Simulated assay, not measured.
Amino acid sequence: MIDVRLQLSVSDARRRFDLDIAFATDAPFIALYGPSGAGKSLTLQAMAGLLPVRAGHVRLDGRTLLDTAAGVCLPPEARGVGYLFQQYALFPHLSVRDNIAFGLTSWRRRLAPEDAARVDALIESFGLGAMARSRPATLSGGQQQRVALARALACRPQVLLLDEPFAALHTTLRRELRAELRDLQRRLGIPAVIVSHDPDDVMALADEVFMLDGGGLQQSLRAGDPDLRAALERRS
């Protein structure tokens, strides 16, 4: 069960944006859908602990990650969240293997044997063995996405957050990687939240869709609802 209630504001010298959203679901794969500027990515960032929240809570399977009323606010590294950024945020100076291992290391210690084994297993699982020593700049867009996804999974997250993961990919590769991602999520059995403004992403992946606009939740629909495709196209 994912249970989210968030109120926050972000602003600069020119504008202010207020996010006020609440949803709860036991769907294994959910989508936050809406136009650019609707508040989708802000929601993910707040769930991950990357933004300050004025009021609200984030609960995952009964575990409280954030509860402003109770004074609970776990730091990002303690939330058990795997985060796939829109531009993947790979470190250009690190190899594929070191990128995947990054969240398991610190400046004080080397990679533990069990963590090294996990990194090797992820490299094998994602078909990255031949490029394990390569730098991100030498990889294709699909390969970079696989590296970023493997890194997000290295810390054994309890939830996977995906911010426009297919935005930089061409149509054929998007279709292939959607199928891979859906299969991976089912095999791992961890809930996933994807941000998208592409109806095809949502139709292929989501069990439940929360439609956002203007910083608020406008509608929610389940997969299989006959009105889903039309609702997505109206709000695209």
Rank of each mutant, 00 (worst) to 15 (best):
I2W: 15
I2P: 15
D3S: 13
R5W: 10
L6K: 07
Q7K: 04
L8C: 08
L8A: 07
V10D: 12
V10I: 15
A13K: 14
A13T: 14
F17H: 04
D20V: 12
A24K: 04
A24G: 00
A24V: 07
D26Y: 03
P28C: 05
P28W: 01
A31Q: 04
S36I: 01
G39E: 02
S41A: 03
S41K: 00
L42I: 01
T43F: 04
A46N: 07
M47I: 15
M47S: 14
G49P: 05
L51F: 11
L51H: 11
L51D: 09
V53W: 14
A55H: 15
A55L: 13
H57V: 05
H57G: 07
V58H: 10
D61C: 12
R63Q: 01
T64W: 11
L66F: 13
D67N: 14
A69N: 02
A69E: 06
G71R: 00
G71H: 02
V72C: 01
C73L: 10
C73M: 11
P76Q: 11
E77V: 12
E77L: 07
E77P: 12
A78R: 14
R79I: 02
G80L: 05
G80F: 01
V81L: 14
G82D: 01
G82F: 03
L84G: 08
L84M: 08
F85R: 15
Q86G: 03
L90V: 03
H93S: 14
R97P: 00
D98H: 11
D98I: 09
I100W: 07
F102E: 09
L104S: 05
T105L: 06
R109N: 09
R110C: 05
R110D: 08
R110I: 08
R110E: 06
A112N: 04
A117V: 04
D120S: 02
A121T: 01
A121S: 06
A121D: 06
L122K: 03
E124L: 09
S125E: 11
S125D: 07
F126Q: 08
G127V: 01
L128G: 04
G129T: 14
M131Q: 09
M131T: 12
A132F: 11
R135Q: 10
T138R: 15
L139K: 07
S140F: 02
G142S: 02
Q143P: 02
Q143L: 01
A148D: 07
A152P: 03
L153S: 11
L153C: 11
A154N: 00
A154V: 03
Q158L: 11
Q158H: 12
P165I: 13
A168Y: 00
L169Q: 06
H170S: 11
T171F: 13
T172H: 15
R174I: 09
R175T: 15
R175L: 13
A179H: 00
L181G: 07
R182Q: 08
R182A: 06
D183C: 05
Q185M: 06
Q185D: 00
V195N: 03
S196E: 04
P199R: 06
D200L: 14
D200S: 12
D200M: 12
V202H: 13
A204H: 09
A204D: 12
L205N: 08
A206P: 07
E208K: 12
F210H: 14
M211T: 07
L212E: 00
G214L: 13
L217N: 01
Q218S: 12
Q218W: 10
L221R: 15
L221D: 15
R222P: 01
R222T: 00
G224L: 03
P226F: 11
A231C: 06
A231K: 06
E233V: 13
R234Y: 08
R234W: 10
